[in-house]
Design a protein around this nucleic acid. Structure first.
Lengths: 214, 214
DNA sequence: TCGTGTGAAAATATTCACAGCC
DNA sequence: GGCTGTGAATATTTTCACACGA
């Protein structure tokens, strides 16, 4: 099902949009929609129809001329493009409020994304059991990451400890990091980082809301 | 302190980066850094130095030639640019796991962002007290939103109820929506929507991790 | 006939390079 | 001397428009 790209470089924005199309196609499939063309799909995703077609063209030809796209087929194709059909294992570092909320988010399981290790440096938290996982010392990342086959790290520690967590994850052999802390981190080139910060999106809203008024 | 833009249109990417600069400047200020030039600021933010200068130039001239930018001054300026210096009030719709996690996130208060109303349509949840807020029926949005001076809505309901929540929020007079549900919503042009979906960022990671290998 | 797939055109965004100013 | 602010050059992304195939 996996669909390696036809071209060298794929815009980051394309990946983001593919994730949106996937989300919409999954909903449509559940609703029993069988075929969709680029125009209505684009409309729900707030993009241009040729944008949809171009985004897909980076990976191949999946539509039927004069007809459109078969919803469940395209859904599977996009999953393959994003490698969302593979099983991914993650380590969560920092079991504070945010960390616990993520551990308790059941949607992950059902989407091939599993948090299989919880880590913290607070001796009072180490050993605690949370949603079926024992909390380990961050020092044991080095052994647990390879042992559990973990490729992604999730940082939910306070900002001042984010860099240390990142370094420990990288040293343990992680390939990508989701950083929920409000701190930038520095990692080697071969490690990918995604920053997730509530306020970034809030500021998009506040900026737009006020701007519109003038 | 508020800093209306010099130009008509400002790229969305610029707003996102300003949020990043703000985050970094706040950390630098706490660390006692007084002056920073575009080059090192750009480096921590993983952008080009002239990008930083151009982003700021959309709003005005805030640096000192031959010196750089005064950290705390620039921090305040950017806050003004993003209208993050204003107090914002939000209504949260859907007090499930995700909703509770957000209600229990103390960082909001300290950043001029307050969730002042919690709403749900489940009769068993209505009336419950959560982190100092009483849960109201979503039907009372219509009166509570103007009464409490709310401008932003946060949707944390299951996907199938997202559109209804959105419509209720819009009818109640909301100006912007943060949508945590995994559903697209349709709203009038004057309402802004930001989609927040864990998997979008996960897919960026998974795509990059696998792509790199080839 | 209808909607995809795709070069070519247009629009945007980023980076360069340097004049201007502290 | 050093770093900002900015027009000009480049690169990238989006949109158009139409040939092509079901």
């Amino acid at each position: 099902m996996n669909q390696p790209p036809k071209y060298e470089h794929i815009p980051r924005a394309t990946i983001q949009r593919l994730a949106t199309y996937l989300q919409v196609l999954e909903a449509m499939d559940k609703d029993g929609v069988q075929v969709i063309s680029s125009e209505p799909l684009a409309r729900v995703c707030d993009v241009n129809a040729s944008q949809v077609r171009k985004d897909l063209a980076y990976f191949g030809e999946f539509g039927v001329r004069g007809v459109g796209y078969y919803v469940s087929y395209l859904r599977d194709i996009i999953k393959g493009c994003l490698y969302a059909d593979l099983k991914w294992k993650a380590a969560l570092v920092g079991v504070g409020n945010m960390g616990r909320a993520l551990l308790n988010y059941p949607e992950f399981r059902s989407n091939n994304f599993n948090i299989v290790g919880a880590f913290d440096c607070d001796p009072f938290k180490i050993g605690e059991r949370l949603y079926g996982l024992e909390v380990y010392c961050t020092k044991s990342l080095m052994e647990k990451v390879p042992e559990l086959g973990i490729e992604i790290g999730i940082i939910t520690v306070p900002p001042e400890r984010a860099q240390r967590a990142a370094t420990q994850l990288v040293d343990a052999g992680i390939k990508g990091i989701l950083n929920y802390s409000a701190a930038r981190i520095s990692v080697p080139d071969h490690v990918f980082v995604e920053y997730i910060n509530f306020f970034h999106q809030v500021y998009s809203l506040t900026f737009n809301i006020v701007s519109q008024k003038r």
